[in-house]
Design a protein around this nucleic acid. Structure first.
Length: 204
DNA sequence: ATGTCGATTTGCT
DNA sequence: GCAAATCGACATA
């Protein structure tokens, strides 16, 4: 199955990338183990002008350096000291845009995911939430900056069609400190899908 | 140097 | 339902 090519990521419309990633497969081949899941939930972070984005005002640090690189690479950072959050960098070099992958539905290597997570039974918590899916797929900060056309992490299009009315668009999680930008509708998830971290109020 | 807080998860009260 | 876990960035000293 072919990997999504670089032009898919190198667009300036990061929200479009975030929406189109829904229904695609996120695949990792780490430590000789292949694991994959269907992307069910994403968030867009729109660079210099987005107050919730690590790259706001083009502010550059060792942690967020990879956000400024070319679209089509991984940006992995640590949150709350323990969680490794996986993002896909979009846009041209110099514009710190990215899509946070917030949840997946396990498809391949479920046994390996359960082992990594120390679970004995499949459970929604296995990979619904950005920190937990990173553990399930074996994604850690040393992988930040690697290409998504390489041999460790990539996206595959399985031809699953996601129509507009199957996508819930709502506000991002945990960005209260971003002021007015916390209200921006930059979070997307598959309606009716079990493997989503949190549902928007009143939406099944 | 020290303290606070975050794109979160978990176990225990 | 709450608080601990504990890295990197930043503010204050």
């Amino acid at each position: 199955m072919p990997k999504l090519p670089l032009p898919f990521y190198r667009r300036s419309d990061t929200c479009a990338v975030a929406r189109e990633l829904l229904g695609k497969h996120l695949v990792t081949q780490i430590g000789g183990i292949r694991t994959a899941g269907l992307i069910t939930e994403t968030e867009a972070y729109l660079g210099a002008t987005d107050q919730a984005c690590h790259g706001r005002h083009y502010h550059r640090t060792p942690r967020n350096e990879h956000m400024f690189w070319e679209g089509g690479i991984a940006y992995v950072y640590i949150c709350y000291g323990i969680h490794h959050l996986f993002n896909i960098v979009t846009h041209e070099p110099g514009e710190p845009h990215a899509v946070l992958i917030r949840a997946i539905q396990p498809v391949e290597g479920v046994e390996a995911m359960m082992k990594r997570r120390n679970y004995f039974k499949p459970d929604k918590r296995l990979s619904s939430g950005p920190g937990s899916l990173s553990v399930a797929l074996g994604i850690t900060t040393p992988l930040s900056g690697i290409s998504l056309t390489g041999k460790q992490i990539w996206i595959e299009d399985k031809g699953i069609q996601v129509s507009k009315n199957e996508i819930v668009t709502t506000t991002r999680i945990g960005v209260e400190s971003a002021g007015a930008d916390a209200q921006l509708p930059y979070r997307f998830y598959l309606k009716d899908n079990h493997w989503v971290s949190k549902r928007a109020p009143g939406i099944k």
